[in-house]
Design a binder for these strands. Structure first.
Length: 555
RNA sequence: CCGCCCAUAGCUCAACUGGAUAGAGCAGCGGACUUCUAAUCCGCAGGCUGCAGGUUCGAAUCCUGCUGGGCGGACCA
Protein backbone atom coordinates (compact mmCIF):
# COMPACT_ATOMS: atom_id res chain seq x y z
CA UNK A 1 0.00 0.00 0.00
CA UNK A 2 1.80 2.98 -1.34
CA UNK A 3 -0.31 5.51 0.51
CA UNK A 4 0.72 4.21 3.92
CA UNK A 5 4.33 4.23 2.92
CA UNK A 6 4.15 7.87 1.89
CA UNK A 7 2.27 8.81 5.02
CA UNK A 8 5.00 7.25 7.13
CA UNK A 9 7.69 8.97 5.10
CA UNK A 10 6.08 12.38 5.57
CA UNK A 11 5.65 11.89 9.28
CA UNK A 12 9.19 10.68 9.58
CA UNK A 13 10.43 13.78 7.78
CA UNK A 14 8.41 15.85 10.20
CA UNK A 15 9.95 14.15 13.21
CA UNK A 16 13.40 14.66 11.74
CA UNK A 17 12.62 18.35 11.44
CA UNK A 18 11.59 18.38 15.06
CA UNK A 19 14.79 16.62 16.08
CA UNK A 20 16.85 19.16 14.22
CA UNK A 21 14.98 21.94 15.90
CA UNK A 22 13.52 23.22 12.64
CA UNK A 23 10.06 23.31 14.20
CA UNK A 24 8.63 22.58 17.63
CA UNK A 25 7.02 19.26 18.47
CA UNK A 26 3.27 19.12 18.11
CA UNK A 27 1.37 15.86 18.21
CA UNK A 28 0.18 14.78 14.80
CA UNK A 29 -3.53 14.39 14.96
CA UNK A 30 -5.41 11.76 13.04
CA UNK A 31 -6.33 14.46 10.57
CA UNK A 32 -3.07 14.07 8.74
CA UNK A 33 -4.05 12.55 5.45
CA UNK A 34 -2.22 11.32 2.44
CA UNK A 35 -4.76 10.97 -0.33
CA UNK A 36 -4.88 11.03 -4.10
CA UNK A 37 -5.99 14.53 -5.09
CA UNK A 38 -9.02 15.06 -7.27
CA UNK A 39 -7.01 16.92 -9.87
CA UNK A 40 -4.43 14.96 -11.78
CA UNK A 41 -2.17 17.99 -12.05
CA UNK A 42 -1.77 17.84 -8.29
CA UNK A 43 0.10 14.60 -8.49
CA UNK A 44 -0.54 11.07 -7.33
CA UNK A 45 -0.77 11.75 -3.62
CA UNK A 46 -1.07 14.85 -1.49
CA UNK A 47 -0.32 15.47 2.17
CA UNK A 48 -1.96 18.15 4.26
CA UNK A 49 0.48 17.85 7.15
CA UNK A 50 1.88 21.35 6.80
CA UNK A 51 -1.62 22.81 6.71
CA UNK A 52 -2.85 21.14 9.86
CA UNK A 53 0.24 21.83 11.95
CA UNK A 54 1.29 25.26 10.73
CA UNK A 55 -1.29 27.28 12.59
CA UNK A 56 -0.40 25.65 15.88
CA UNK A 57 3.29 26.23 15.18
CA UNK A 58 2.68 29.80 14.10
CA UNK A 59 4.50 29.11 10.86
CA UNK A 60 3.61 29.59 7.24
CA UNK A 61 2.27 26.31 5.84
CA UNK A 62 4.12 26.79 2.58
CA UNK A 63 7.40 27.31 4.36
CA UNK A 64 6.85 24.19 6.43
CA UNK A 65 5.90 22.18 3.38
CA UNK A 66 9.08 23.38 1.71
CA UNK A 67 11.15 22.06 4.60
CA UNK A 68 9.49 18.69 4.46
CA UNK A 69 9.86 18.50 0.70
CA UNK A 70 13.62 19.05 0.98
CA UNK A 71 13.95 16.11 3.34
CA UNK A 72 11.75 13.83 1.27
CA UNK A 73 13.41 14.56 -2.05
CA UNK A 74 16.09 11.94 -1.54
CA UNK A 75 13.54 9.12 -1.71
CA UNK A 76 13.79 7.56 -5.18
CA UNK A 77 10.10 6.70 -5.06
CA UNK A 78 9.30 10.27 -6.01
CA UNK A 79 9.73 11.74 -9.44
CA UNK A 80 8.84 15.17 -8.19
CA UNK A 81 7.55 16.80 -5.03
CA UNK A 82 5.74 20.11 -5.21
CA UNK A 83 4.57 22.59 -2.63
CA UNK A 84 1.23 23.78 -3.91
CA UNK A 85 -1.75 25.91 -3.06
CA UNK A 86 -2.00 26.95 0.56
CA UNK A 87 0.65 24.41 1.59
CA UNK A 88 -0.09 20.98 0.19
CA UNK A 89 2.71 18.60 -0.52
CA UNK A 90 2.10 16.98 -3.88
CA UNK A 91 3.89 13.78 -4.73
CA UNK A 92 4.50 12.48 -8.20
CA UNK A 93 5.39 8.81 -8.27
CA UNK A 94 7.97 7.48 -10.69
CA UNK A 95 6.44 5.57 -13.60
CA UNK A 96 8.84 2.71 -13.08
CA UNK A 97 7.47 2.24 -9.58
CA UNK A 98 3.93 1.73 -10.86
CA UNK A 99 5.18 -0.75 -13.40
CA UNK A 100 7.24 -2.74 -10.93
CA UNK A 101 4.33 -2.73 -8.55
CA UNK A 102 2.39 -4.85 -11.03
CA UNK A 103 4.74 -7.76 -10.34
CA UNK A 104 4.32 -7.28 -6.62
CA UNK A 105 0.56 -7.44 -7.01
CA UNK A 106 0.78 -10.49 -9.19
CA UNK A 107 2.92 -12.27 -6.58
CA UNK A 108 0.34 -11.54 -3.89
CA UNK A 109 -2.03 -13.74 -5.86
CA UNK A 110 -5.55 -14.20 -4.63
CA UNK A 111 -4.76 -12.58 -1.33
CA UNK A 112 -4.19 -9.21 -2.99
CA UNK A 113 -6.49 -6.68 -1.37
CA UNK A 114 -6.21 -8.21 2.05
CA UNK A 115 -4.41 -6.42 4.84
CA UNK A 116 -3.88 -6.50 8.55
CA UNK A 117 -5.59 -3.17 9.15
CA UNK A 118 -7.91 -4.84 11.62
CA UNK A 119 -5.06 -6.34 13.57
CA UNK A 120 -7.02 -9.49 14.25
CA UNK A 121 -9.62 -7.68 16.34
CA UNK A 122 -12.74 -9.69 16.91
CA UNK A 123 -15.92 -8.11 15.59
CA UNK A 124 -19.42 -9.40 15.89
CA UNK A 125 -21.94 -8.35 13.30
CA UNK A 126 -25.58 -8.80 14.08
CA UNK A 127 -27.93 -8.07 11.23
CA UNK A 128 -31.38 -8.73 9.78
CA UNK A 129 -32.66 -10.43 12.97
CA UNK A 130 -36.18 -10.08 11.61
CA UNK A 131 -38.90 -11.53 13.82
CA UNK A 132 -39.89 -15.01 12.69
CA UNK A 133 -43.47 -13.92 12.15
CA UNK A 134 -43.34 -13.67 8.40
CA UNK A 135 -41.11 -13.77 5.34
CA UNK A 136 -38.27 -11.30 4.83
CA UNK A 137 -39.16 -8.25 2.81
CA UNK A 138 -37.02 -6.02 0.65
CA UNK A 139 -35.93 -3.83 3.54
CA UNK A 140 -34.46 -6.85 5.28
CA UNK A 141 -32.66 -7.58 2.03
CA UNK A 142 -30.82 -4.33 2.27
CA UNK A 143 -29.74 -5.06 5.82
CA UNK A 144 -28.67 -8.54 4.75
CA UNK A 145 -26.60 -7.28 1.84
CA UNK A 146 -24.93 -4.58 3.91
CA UNK A 147 -24.22 -6.85 6.86
CA UNK A 148 -22.92 -9.76 4.88
CA UNK A 149 -20.77 -7.64 2.63
CA UNK A 150 -19.39 -5.70 5.57
CA UNK A 151 -18.43 -9.00 7.15
CA UNK A 152 -16.54 -10.00 4.02
CA UNK A 153 -14.79 -6.64 3.84
CA UNK A 154 -13.82 -6.72 7.51
CA UNK A 155 -12.43 -10.18 7.12
CA UNK A 156 -10.34 -9.12 4.15
CA UNK A 157 -9.02 -6.21 6.17
CA UNK A 158 -7.72 -8.46 8.88
CA UNK A 159 -10.57 -8.54 11.36
CA UNK A 160 -11.97 -11.70 12.80
CA UNK A 161 -15.68 -11.64 12.17
CA UNK A 162 -18.70 -13.47 13.46
CA UNK A 163 -22.16 -13.04 12.00
CA UNK A 164 -25.16 -13.52 14.16
CA UNK A 165 -28.91 -13.56 13.74
CA UNK A 166 -30.99 -12.87 16.83
CA UNK A 167 -34.31 -14.70 16.80
CA UNK A 168 -37.15 -13.13 18.77
CA UNK A 169 -38.81 -16.44 19.49
CA UNK A 170 -40.68 -15.53 22.63
CA UNK A 171 -43.22 -13.00 23.79
CA UNK A 172 -46.47 -11.49 22.79
CA UNK A 173 -46.04 -11.55 19.06
CA UNK A 174 -45.30 -15.26 19.19
CA UNK A 175 -48.69 -15.78 20.82
CA UNK A 176 -50.29 -13.71 18.11
CA UNK A 177 -48.50 -15.73 15.47
CA UNK A 178 -49.57 -19.04 17.00
CA UNK A 179 -53.14 -17.88 17.37
CA UNK A 180 -53.21 -16.64 13.78
CA UNK A 181 -52.14 -20.04 12.52
CA UNK A 182 -54.59 -21.77 14.85
CA UNK A 183 -57.52 -19.79 13.46
CA UNK A 184 -56.51 -20.49 9.88
CA UNK A 185 -56.24 -24.14 10.86
CA UNK A 186 -59.83 -24.10 12.08
CA UNK A 187 -60.85 -22.38 8.86
CA UNK A 188 -59.10 -25.06 6.90
CA UNK A 189 -61.57 -27.56 8.28
CA UNK A 190 -64.52 -25.40 7.42
CA UNK A 191 -65.07 -23.69 10.77
CA UNK A 192 -66.37 -20.16 10.76
CA UNK A 193 -63.90 -17.96 12.61
CA UNK A 194 -63.59 -14.30 13.29
CA UNK A 195 -60.07 -13.30 12.32
CA UNK A 196 -58.95 -10.26 14.32
CA UNK A 197 -57.47 -7.33 12.47
CA UNK A 198 -54.29 -7.24 14.54
CA UNK A 199 -53.44 -10.84 13.67
CA UNK A 200 -51.10 -11.72 10.83
CA UNK A 201 -53.07 -11.45 7.62
CA UNK A 202 -50.60 -12.80 5.07
CA UNK A 203 -51.31 -15.85 2.96
CA UNK A 204 -48.25 -17.59 4.35
CA UNK A 205 -50.21 -18.11 7.58
CA UNK A 206 -52.78 -20.12 5.61
CA UNK A 207 -49.99 -22.12 4.01
CA UNK A 208 -48.57 -23.04 7.39
CA UNK A 209 -52.03 -23.97 8.66
CA UNK A 210 -52.71 -26.26 5.76
CA UNK A 211 -49.34 -27.92 6.01
CA UNK A 212 -50.12 -28.63 9.66
CA UNK A 213 -53.49 -29.96 8.62
CA UNK A 214 -51.99 -32.33 6.10
CA UNK A 215 -49.31 -33.48 8.52
CA UNK A 216 -51.29 -33.76 11.72
CA UNK A 217 -54.86 -34.07 10.54
CA UNK A 218 -57.70 -32.66 12.56
CA UNK A 219 -56.48 -33.75 15.98
CA UNK A 220 -56.26 -30.16 17.29
CA UNK A 221 -59.79 -29.29 16.30
CA UNK A 222 -61.40 -30.20 19.58
CA UNK A 223 -58.56 -29.05 21.74
CA UNK A 224 -58.92 -25.70 23.49
CA UNK A 225 -56.62 -23.10 22.00
CA UNK A 226 -54.66 -22.71 25.21
CA UNK A 227 -53.47 -26.30 25.27
CA UNK A 228 -52.25 -26.44 21.71
CA UNK A 229 -50.99 -22.90 21.25
CA UNK A 230 -47.42 -23.88 22.03
CA UNK A 231 -47.52 -26.42 19.28
CA UNK A 232 -48.79 -23.88 16.76
CA UNK A 233 -46.20 -21.34 17.82
CA UNK A 234 -43.31 -23.80 17.63
CA UNK A 235 -44.37 -25.17 14.30
CA UNK A 236 -44.95 -21.76 12.77
CA UNK A 237 -41.60 -20.44 13.99
CA UNK A 238 -39.82 -23.50 12.74
CA UNK A 239 -41.31 -23.17 9.28
CA UNK A 240 -40.87 -19.43 9.02
CA UNK A 241 -37.33 -19.44 10.38
CA UNK A 242 -36.32 -22.13 7.95
CA UNK A 243 -37.82 -20.15 5.07
CA UNK A 244 -35.91 -17.09 6.20
CA UNK A 245 -32.78 -19.17 6.26
CA UNK A 246 -33.40 -20.43 2.77
CA UNK A 247 -33.99 -16.94 1.43
CA UNK A 248 -30.78 -15.73 3.00
CA UNK A 249 -28.84 -18.67 1.63
CA UNK A 250 -30.10 -17.86 -1.82
CA UNK A 251 -29.02 -14.29 -1.23
CA UNK A 252 -25.55 -15.68 -0.37
CA UNK A 253 -25.82 -14.51 3.20
CA UNK A 254 -24.43 -16.87 5.83
CA UNK A 255 -24.41 -16.78 9.60
CA UNK A 256 -22.11 -18.24 12.19
CA UNK A 257 -24.71 -18.15 14.95
CA UNK A 258 -28.47 -18.15 15.23
CA UNK A 259 -29.14 -16.85 18.70
CA UNK A 260 -32.47 -17.60 20.34
CA UNK A 261 -34.02 -15.02 22.64
CA UNK A 262 -35.80 -17.82 24.44
CA UNK A 263 -32.51 -19.20 25.73
CA UNK A 264 -31.78 -15.90 27.46
CA UNK A 265 -34.88 -16.36 29.58
CA UNK A 266 -34.42 -20.07 30.10
CA UNK A 267 -30.90 -19.60 31.39
CA UNK A 268 -32.11 -16.93 33.78
CA UNK A 269 -29.77 -14.34 32.32
CA UNK A 270 -32.53 -11.77 31.89
CA UNK A 271 -33.62 -11.94 35.53
CA UNK A 272 -30.06 -12.06 36.75
CA UNK A 273 -29.07 -9.03 34.71
CA UNK A 274 -31.98 -7.00 35.95
CA UNK A 275 -31.32 -7.80 39.56
CA UNK A 276 -27.67 -6.91 39.11
CA UNK A 277 -28.62 -3.60 37.60
CA UNK A 278 -30.95 -3.15 40.52
CA UNK A 279 -28.02 -3.63 42.89
CA UNK A 280 -26.14 -0.95 41.01
CA UNK A 281 -29.07 1.40 41.44
CA UNK A 282 -30.09 1.54 37.80
CA UNK A 283 -33.49 -0.05 38.36
CA UNK A 284 -36.37 1.51 40.25
CA UNK A 285 -39.99 0.66 40.81
CA UNK A 286 -42.86 2.93 39.96
CA UNK A 287 -46.59 2.25 39.66
CA UNK A 288 -45.94 -1.44 39.96
CA UNK A 289 -43.47 -1.64 37.09
CA UNK A 290 -39.68 -1.92 37.00
CA UNK A 291 -37.85 0.86 35.17
CA UNK A 292 -34.33 1.18 33.87
CA UNK A 293 -32.89 4.58 34.77
CA UNK A 294 -31.75 5.37 31.22
CA UNK A 295 -31.88 9.12 31.76
CA UNK A 296 -28.90 8.83 34.09
CA UNK A 297 -26.88 7.56 31.12
CA UNK A 298 -27.81 9.84 28.30
CA UNK A 299 -31.19 8.59 27.14
CA UNK A 300 -34.14 10.95 27.13
CA UNK A 301 -36.58 8.75 29.01
CA UNK A 302 -36.45 5.98 31.56
CA UNK A 303 -37.51 2.64 30.13
CA UNK A 304 -39.72 -0.12 31.44
CA UNK A 305 -38.09 -3.51 31.77
CA UNK A 306 -40.89 -5.30 33.61
CA UNK A 307 -44.47 -4.30 33.26
CA UNK A 308 -46.86 -4.16 36.20
CA UNK A 309 -48.45 -7.37 34.92
CA UNK A 310 -45.13 -9.09 35.55
CA UNK A 311 -44.17 -9.53 31.92
CA UNK A 312 -40.66 -8.58 30.85
CA UNK A 313 -40.33 -6.21 27.93
CA UNK A 314 -38.27 -6.89 24.84
CA UNK A 315 -35.89 -4.23 26.04
CA UNK A 316 -35.14 -6.40 29.07
CA UNK A 317 -34.06 -9.18 26.71
CA UNK A 318 -32.04 -6.71 24.69
CA UNK A 319 -30.07 -5.71 27.76
CA UNK A 320 -29.36 -9.31 28.62
CA UNK A 321 -28.54 -10.11 25.01
CA UNK A 322 -25.99 -7.33 24.73
CA UNK A 323 -24.52 -8.35 28.03
CA UNK A 324 -24.18 -11.87 26.68
CA UNK A 325 -22.44 -10.54 23.61
CA UNK A 326 -20.10 -8.33 25.64
CA UNK A 327 -19.15 -11.23 27.87
CA UNK A 328 -18.25 -13.30 24.86
CA UNK A 329 -15.26 -10.99 24.53
CA UNK A 330 -15.68 -9.24 21.20
CA UNK A 331 -13.62 -6.13 20.65
CA UNK A 332 -16.44 -4.51 18.77
CA UNK A 333 -20.13 -5.14 18.39
CA UNK A 334 -21.87 -3.92 15.27
CA UNK A 335 -25.65 -3.97 15.18
CA UNK A 336 -27.35 -3.26 11.90
CA UNK A 337 -30.87 -1.97 12.39
CA UNK A 338 -33.57 -0.46 10.26
CA UNK A 339 -33.59 3.30 10.58
CA UNK A 340 -37.02 3.14 12.15
CA UNK A 341 -35.33 1.74 15.25
CA UNK A 342 -33.09 4.75 15.76
CA UNK A 343 -34.87 5.55 19.00
CA UNK A 344 -33.33 2.39 20.43
CA UNK A 345 -29.72 3.41 20.06
CA UNK A 346 -29.59 5.66 23.11
CA UNK A 347 -31.29 3.16 25.39
CA UNK A 348 -29.14 0.21 24.41
CA UNK A 349 -26.00 2.31 24.77
CA UNK A 350 -27.24 3.42 28.17
CA UNK A 351 -27.67 -0.23 29.11
CA UNK A 352 -24.14 -1.00 27.98
CA UNK A 353 -22.76 1.72 30.21
CA UNK A 354 -24.87 0.52 33.10
CA UNK A 355 -23.36 -2.92 32.63
CA UNK A 356 -19.95 -1.35 33.08
CA UNK A 357 -18.73 -1.25 29.48
CA UNK A 358 -17.66 1.57 27.24
CA UNK A 359 -20.56 2.56 25.05
CA UNK A 360 -18.36 2.68 21.97
CA UNK A 361 -18.02 -1.08 22.24
CA UNK A 362 -21.24 -1.02 20.29
CA UNK A 363 -21.59 0.55 16.89
CA UNK A 364 -25.09 0.76 15.51
CA UNK A 365 -25.45 1.06 11.77
CA UNK A 366 -28.84 2.40 10.80
CA UNK A 367 -29.98 1.27 7.39
CA UNK A 368 -32.57 3.51 5.82
CA UNK A 369 -35.83 2.16 4.54
CA UNK A 370 -36.25 0.99 1.00
CA UNK A 371 -38.80 2.35 -1.42
CA UNK A 372 -39.72 -0.21 -3.99
CA UNK A 373 -40.52 1.38 -7.32
CA UNK A 374 -42.36 -0.17 -10.20
CA UNK A 375 -43.56 1.73 -13.21
CA UNK A 376 -42.36 4.87 -11.47
CA UNK A 377 -44.70 4.31 -8.53
CA UNK A 378 -43.90 3.40 -4.94
CA UNK A 379 -45.30 0.08 -3.82
CA UNK A 380 -46.87 0.25 -0.38
CA UNK A 381 -45.62 -2.03 2.33
CA UNK A 382 -47.17 -3.15 5.57
CA UNK A 383 -46.15 -6.35 7.31
CA UNK A 384 -49.22 -6.83 9.44
CA UNK A 385 -51.68 -6.29 6.65
CA UNK A 386 -49.74 -8.78 4.55
CA UNK A 387 -49.05 -6.22 1.86
CA UNK A 388 -45.37 -6.29 1.18
CA UNK A 389 -42.92 -7.38 -1.43
CA UNK A 390 -40.84 -10.22 -0.11
CA UNK A 391 -37.14 -10.60 -0.60
CA UNK A 392 -37.86 -13.88 -2.35
CA UNK A 393 -40.08 -12.22 -4.92
CA UNK A 394 -37.37 -9.72 -5.68
CA UNK A 395 -34.73 -12.44 -5.95
CA UNK A 396 -36.89 -14.50 -8.29
CA UNK A 397 -37.55 -11.38 -10.29
CA UNK A 398 -34.18 -9.62 -10.62
CA UNK A 399 -31.70 -12.14 -9.26
CA UNK A 400 -29.28 -12.05 -6.38
CA UNK A 401 -26.50 -10.21 -8.18
CA UNK A 402 -28.53 -7.21 -9.26
CA UNK A 403 -30.27 -6.95 -5.91
CA UNK A 404 -27.08 -7.09 -3.90
CA UNK A 405 -25.29 -4.64 -6.11
CA UNK A 406 -28.09 -2.10 -5.92
CA UNK A 407 -28.24 -2.39 -2.14
CA UNK A 408 -24.52 -1.84 -1.97
CA UNK A 409 -24.14 1.15 -4.25
CA UNK A 410 -25.56 3.54 -1.72
CA UNK A 411 -24.32 4.51 1.66
CA UNK A 412 -26.68 2.95 4.10
CA UNK A 413 -27.96 6.08 5.78
CA UNK A 414 -29.44 7.37 2.56
CA UNK A 415 -32.95 6.49 1.55
CA UNK A 416 -32.91 3.99 -1.25
CA UNK A 417 -35.23 3.82 -4.19
CA UNK A 418 -35.13 0.28 -5.49
CA UNK A 419 -36.33 0.48 -9.04
CA UNK A 420 -37.62 -2.95 -10.02
CA UNK A 421 -37.72 -2.13 -13.71
CA UNK A 422 -34.12 -1.03 -13.62
CA UNK A 423 -32.91 -4.02 -11.62
CA UNK A 424 -34.76 -6.30 -13.99
CA UNK A 425 -33.37 -4.77 -17.14
CA UNK A 426 -30.72 -6.95 -18.73
CA UNK A 427 -29.10 -4.05 -20.53
CA UNK A 428 -27.28 -0.74 -20.42
CA UNK A 429 -28.85 1.04 -17.50
CA UNK A 430 -28.18 -1.71 -15.01
CA UNK A 431 -24.90 -0.94 -13.25
CA UNK A 432 -24.23 -4.54 -12.13
CA UNK A 433 -23.52 -5.71 -15.65
CA UNK A 434 -21.07 -2.93 -16.24
CA UNK A 435 -18.73 -4.41 -13.66
CA UNK A 436 -19.47 -8.04 -14.40
CA UNK A 437 -18.96 -7.41 -18.09
CA UNK A 438 -15.47 -6.11 -17.42
CA UNK A 439 -14.65 -9.40 -15.75
CA UNK A 440 -16.23 -11.40 -18.54
CA UNK A 441 -14.31 -9.46 -21.17
CA UNK A 442 -11.01 -10.16 -19.49
CA UNK A 443 -11.89 -13.82 -19.12
CA UNK A 444 -12.66 -13.87 -22.79
CA UNK A 445 -9.25 -12.41 -23.61
CA UNK A 446 -7.63 -15.35 -21.86
CA UNK A 447 -9.89 -17.84 -23.64
CA UNK A 448 -8.77 -16.38 -26.94
CA UNK A 449 -5.15 -16.33 -25.93
CA UNK A 450 -5.33 -19.98 -25.00
CA UNK A 451 -6.88 -20.83 -28.35
CA UNK A 452 -4.00 -19.08 -30.06
CA UNK A 453 -1.55 -21.03 -27.95
CA UNK A 454 -0.49 -17.99 -25.95
CA UNK A 455 0.04 -18.28 -22.24
CA UNK A 456 1.38 -15.92 -19.63
CA UNK A 457 5.08 -16.42 -18.96
CA UNK A 458 6.82 -15.69 -15.69
CA UNK A 459 6.33 -12.05 -14.68
CA UNK A 460 10.07 -11.68 -14.09
CA UNK A 461 10.65 -12.26 -17.79
CA UNK A 462 8.06 -9.74 -18.92
CA UNK A 463 9.10 -6.29 -20.05
CA UNK A 464 6.74 -4.22 -17.94
CA UNK A 465 8.20 -0.96 -19.20
CA UNK A 466 6.01 -1.51 -22.26
CA UNK A 467 3.01 -0.57 -20.14
CA UNK A 468 3.55 3.11 -20.59
CA UNK A 469 0.51 4.67 -22.18
CA UNK A 470 -1.66 7.01 -20.09
CA UNK A 471 -4.28 4.25 -19.91
CA UNK A 472 -1.70 1.80 -18.60
CA UNK A 473 -0.53 4.14 -15.86
CA UNK A 474 -4.05 5.05 -14.85
CA UNK A 475 -4.98 1.41 -14.54
CA UNK A 476 -1.80 0.59 -12.63
CA UNK A 477 -2.62 3.31 -10.13
CA UNK A 478 -6.14 2.07 -9.63
CA UNK A 479 -4.88 -1.47 -9.05
CA UNK A 480 -2.53 -0.21 -6.36
CA UNK A 481 -5.36 1.52 -4.54
CA UNK A 482 -7.34 -1.67 -3.96
CA UNK A 483 -5.95 -2.83 -0.60
CA UNK A 484 -6.25 0.70 0.81
CA UNK A 485 -9.79 0.89 -0.40
CA UNK A 486 -10.70 -2.37 1.30
CA UNK A 487 -9.03 -1.34 4.54
CA UNK A 488 -10.69 2.08 4.59
CA UNK A 489 -14.01 0.56 3.74
CA UNK A 490 -13.67 -1.83 6.67
CA UNK A 491 -12.54 0.78 9.18
CA UNK A 492 -15.37 3.10 8.19
CA UNK A 493 -17.85 0.20 8.16
CA UNK A 494 -18.87 1.29 4.67
CA UNK A 495 -18.95 -1.62 2.23
CA UNK A 496 -20.58 0.49 -0.47
CA UNK A 497 -17.19 1.98 -1.25
CA UNK A 498 -16.15 -1.29 -2.85
CA UNK A 499 -18.88 -1.02 -5.44
CA UNK A 500 -17.78 2.50 -6.35
CA UNK A 501 -14.23 1.38 -6.69
CA UNK A 502 -15.19 -1.49 -8.95
CA UNK A 503 -17.39 0.70 -11.13
CA UNK A 504 -14.48 3.05 -11.60
CA UNK A 505 -12.09 0.21 -12.34
CA UNK A 506 -14.55 -1.19 -14.85
CA UNK A 507 -14.74 2.19 -16.56
CA UNK A 508 -10.97 2.26 -16.91
CA UNK A 509 -10.86 -1.29 -18.16
CA UNK A 510 -13.55 -0.75 -20.79
CA UNK A 511 -11.81 2.37 -21.93
CA UNK A 512 -8.52 0.53 -22.14
CA UNK A 513 -10.14 -2.32 -24.00
CA UNK A 514 -11.42 -0.15 -26.80
CA UNK A 515 -8.11 1.63 -27.17
CA UNK A 516 -5.60 -1.18 -26.88
CA UNK A 517 -5.51 -4.84 -27.75
CA UNK A 518 -4.42 -7.23 -25.04
CA UNK A 519 -3.41 -9.76 -27.63
CA UNK A 520 -1.21 -7.52 -29.71
CA UNK A 521 0.93 -8.16 -32.77
CA UNK A 522 4.08 -7.86 -30.73
CA UNK A 523 4.86 -10.82 -28.49
CA UNK A 524 6.48 -8.86 -25.67
CA UNK A 525 3.71 -6.32 -25.61
CA UNK A 526 1.15 -9.11 -25.47
CA UNK A 527 2.89 -10.61 -22.46
CA UNK A 528 2.99 -7.29 -20.65
CA UNK A 529 -0.66 -6.61 -21.31
CA UNK A 530 -1.74 -10.10 -20.38
CA UNK A 531 -0.03 -9.61 -17.05
CA UNK A 532 -2.01 -6.42 -16.59
CA UNK A 533 -5.18 -8.19 -17.64
CA UNK A 534 -4.59 -11.08 -15.30
CA UNK A 535 -4.08 -8.88 -12.26
CA UNK A 536 -7.06 -6.71 -13.14
CA UNK A 537 -9.30 -9.70 -13.60
CA UNK A 538 -8.31 -11.06 -10.22
CA UNK A 539 -9.22 -7.77 -8.57
CA UNK A 540 -12.64 -7.83 -10.19
CA UNK A 541 -13.09 -11.35 -8.94
CA UNK A 542 -12.01 -10.47 -5.44
CA UNK A 543 -13.95 -7.21 -5.32
CA UNK A 544 -17.17 -8.72 -6.56
CA UNK A 545 -16.67 -11.45 -4.01
CA UNK A 546 -16.57 -8.83 -1.28
CA UNK A 547 -19.97 -7.66 -2.45
CA UNK A 548 -21.27 -11.19 -2.68
CA UNK A 549 -21.84 -10.76 -6.40
CA UNK A 550 -20.76 -13.38 -8.90
CA UNK A 551 -17.98 -12.79 -11.42
CA UNK A 552 -19.09 -14.50 -14.62
CA UNK A 553 -16.58 -15.76 -17.18
CA UNK A 554 -19.06 -15.24 -19.98
CA UNK A 555 -22.05 -12.99 -20.47
C1' C B 1 -44.62 19.74 20.85
C1' C B 2 -39.68 16.95 21.29
C1' G B 3 -35.74 13.85 19.11
C1' C B 4 -32.92 11.28 15.00
C1' C B 5 -31.89 10.97 9.61
C1' C B 6 -31.99 13.17 4.80
C1' A B 7 -31.80 17.52 1.13
C1' U B 8 -25.93 17.96 -4.28
C1' A B 9 -27.11 18.11 -12.47
C1' G B 10 -34.00 16.64 -15.15
C1' C B 11 -33.66 11.31 -12.29
C1' U B 12 -30.62 7.86 -8.97
C1' C B 13 -26.34 8.71 -6.29
C1' A B 14 -20.59 10.04 -5.21
C1' A B 15 -17.12 13.49 -3.24
C1' C B 16 -11.60 9.27 0.62
C1' U B 17 -15.10 12.24 6.75
C1' G B 18 -12.57 19.98 6.71
C1' G B 19 -8.88 20.18 1.18
C1' A B 20 -7.25 22.70 -4.32
C1' U B 21 -11.55 23.84 -10.47
C1' A B 22 -18.14 19.39 -6.67
C1' G B 23 -17.82 13.99 -9.89
C1' A B 24 -20.27 9.19 -12.04
C1' G B 25 -24.44 6.47 -14.10
C1' C B 26 -29.18 6.92 -16.33
C1' A B 27 -32.27 10.15 -19.34
C1' G B 28 -31.00 14.11 -23.79
C1' C B 29 -27.91 15.39 -28.22
C1' G B 30 -23.73 13.97 -31.74
C1' G B 31 -20.15 10.26 -33.15
C1' A B 32 -17.43 4.87 -33.10
C1' C B 33 -18.23 -2.42 -34.60
C1' U B 34 -14.87 -6.73 -41.66
C1' U B 35 -9.65 -6.89 -35.55
C1' C B 36 -9.46 -10.10 -28.10
C1' U B 37 -17.74 -9.74 -26.35
C1' A B 38 -20.98 -2.67 -28.70
C1' A B 39 -24.19 -5.33 -21.75
C1' U B 40 -18.76 -1.19 -24.60
C1' C B 41 -16.19 3.41 -25.98
C1' C B 42 -15.46 8.90 -27.41
C1' G B 43 -17.52 13.83 -27.30
C1' C B 44 -21.40 17.76 -26.04
C1' A B 45 -24.80 19.71 -22.68
C1' G B 46 -26.34 19.79 -17.72
C1' G B 47 -24.81 23.22 -10.60
C1' C B 48 -25.84 29.85 -6.38
C1' U B 49 -24.55 21.82 -3.09
C1' G B 50 -32.78 23.68 -0.07
C1' C B 51 -32.41 29.14 2.27
C1' A B 52 -29.81 32.76 5.69
C1' G B 53 -25.89 33.65 8.87
C1' G B 54 -21.36 31.91 11.57
C1' U B 55 -16.47 29.20 12.64
C1' U B 56 -10.84 29.38 9.53
C1' C B 57 -5.76 29.43 5.59
C1' G B 58 -10.06 26.45 3.23
C1' A B 59 -17.08 24.44 4.08
C1' A B 60 -21.38 20.22 0.10
C1' U B 61 -19.01 18.51 4.77
C1' C B 62 -18.70 21.61 11.48
C1' C B 63 -22.15 25.35 14.53
C1' U B 64 -26.91 28.33 14.85
C1' G B 65 -31.66 29.57 12.84
C1' C B 66 -35.27 28.67 9.10
C1' U B 67 -37.90 25.63 4.79
C1' G B 68 -39.37 21.00 2.93
C1' G B 69 -39.39 15.31 3.22
C1' G B 70 -38.71 10.47 5.97
C1' C B 71 -38.78 8.01 10.71
C1' G B 72 -39.39 7.75 15.77
C1' G B 73 -41.38 9.51 20.57
C1' A B 74 -46.76 3.84 24.90
C1' C B 75 -46.20 -0.49 31.15
C1' C B 76 -46.39 -2.14 21.92
C1' A B 77 -42.57 -4.53 19.05
Amino acid sequence: MLRNRIQEAVEKAYREGVAKGAFPDVSLSASHQVVPPKQEVHGDFASNLALITASRLKRSPREMAGCLAKTLKSDPLFDKIEVAGPGFLNFFIATTWWQKNLRTIWEAGDSYGESDAGNGRLVQLEFVSANPTGPLHVGHGRGAAVGDSLARVLKAAGFNVEREYYINDIGNQMRTLGASVYLRYLEHFGHEVEFPEEYYQGDYIRDIASSIASGEGDRYLDMPQESCLTFFIDTAVKIIASDIRKDLEEFRVHYDNWFSEKTLHESGLVDRTISELQDKGYIFEEEGALWFRATALGDEKDRVVKRSNGILTYFASDIAYHRHKLERGYDLLVDIWGADHHGYVARVKAAIRALGYQEDKLHVLLVQLVNLLEGGKIKAMSTRAGEFVTLREVLDDVGSDAARFIFLTRRCDSHLDFDLDLARSQTQENPVYYVQYAHARLSSVFRNAREQGISLTKPQDIDISLLSTPEDIKLLKQLDAFPCLVADSALALEPYRVSYYLTELAGQLHSYYTRHRFIADDEDLTQARLLLADVTRRIFHKGLGLLGVSAPEKM
